[in-house]
Design a protein around this nucleic acid. Sequence first.
DNA 1: GTTGAGCGTT
Length: 451
Amino acid sequence: QDRRAASQGDYDEQDRRVKGAEVFVGGLPRSATEGTLREIFSTCGEIVDLRIMKDQNGVSKGFGFVRFAERECAYIAKRQKNGIELQGKRLAVDLSLDQDTLFFGNLCKEWSAEEFEELIHKTFKDVISVDLATASNLDSSTSKRRLNRGFAFVRFSSHGAAARVLRIGSRTDFMLGGILHPAINWAERESNVDADEMAKIKTAFVGNLPANANEEYLKKLFGHFGEVIRVAVSRKGQYPVGFIHFGSRSELDNAIKEMDGKTVSGPNRGPSFKIQVSVARPAVENDNKRSREEVKTRRSNVSGGKPDYSHGRYGHDSVERQTKAPRLSNRVADVTDPYEAALNSLPSAVNELLLRILRLGIGSAYDIDIHCIKSLSELPESGAVAVLNQFLITGSDKRNKGEYFLSLIAKRKVEAFGAAQILQDTTYLSRNSEIQTKRYRHQDYDYTASG
DNA sequence: GTTGAGCGTT
């Protein structure tokens, strides 16, 4: 047990060291194994972790990840291996997105940013940053204490650290600050569902069910938590999953608290299993039936607008999401206005985000002046999107918004510049040969250990 | 061909 604790600690150390050192490998032939990957990439530097993603049946999905001991190795891997052929297929090698940020929803709106940050630091380790969505001017009419918007983004020192928190935090008894069960997810995997809507969800998602679980069985299990309006079992996947519609949110919260992670006996006193209960994801509304025009009007009439779950740190939000996102503006473009022209010259995703910030009053055209926009346009689209998302969340309570906006841009530019330097730096080639001759003991880390 | 688990029907 001590050894396990120690190795967990080492793992965290390792995690931190190798940040940014992972490559994504796409275009793998189905037959390629992890051994194949290792063979290919071991010439780039020391590999500390590598995996090929597979479906439930263990069939390769055709892509994988290789994590190196050093960041430089990832660049080398990209240079050396991107586009090479493997069994007739062209490999795609790029720096991995290496997600390390979690979305926290269903938070207590009374928490101040400071309180929440402290709470997060007390509850989890390896926290890098905490961004609680603060109120924009939505509630400016009320004189009472400013409420937060009920969601936050928390960044961790590594994917592994974030994944552990996701595991722990989506479990059971897990109550943040002892009072609520937060909705935790990977930050950029979420769609455009607003936090208020999320808090209204009264449906439980029930997972890890045995194959013979049915509606009746679930009804018996969950009936006494309150009013059960409807129970549904879906058998689309290889195991069934359940949905329990409760009469109120508190009944749902209680059911999660009591049931998630519990060992229960299966249907007809079948073998027992660990049931998993969580807040269901919001049902996807199908916009197809509704005309685009209707959507536009409906959305633009919502005063204040709604927060967006997509953190967009990497600015490559799915096209699907982009097309679903409310198309802004009944604005009449005035092309003679240089400010308007600068706005229009931005990529559409950037333009929309910026318009949203202006519309929500998180920043004004006075704060985000034409200089800011020019500076923003010098960033790659993904960087600009990231800056705007960051501003969207943290900008509203900043004193000098224009300065803050520019500082976010500057940070991005330094990052971009730094990366370019690394790529052009020839010294890493000689370092590479050093790395190759060094022999490290490869350690297998226990991903399943739950701190 | 960007994961890390799983999310449907009235």
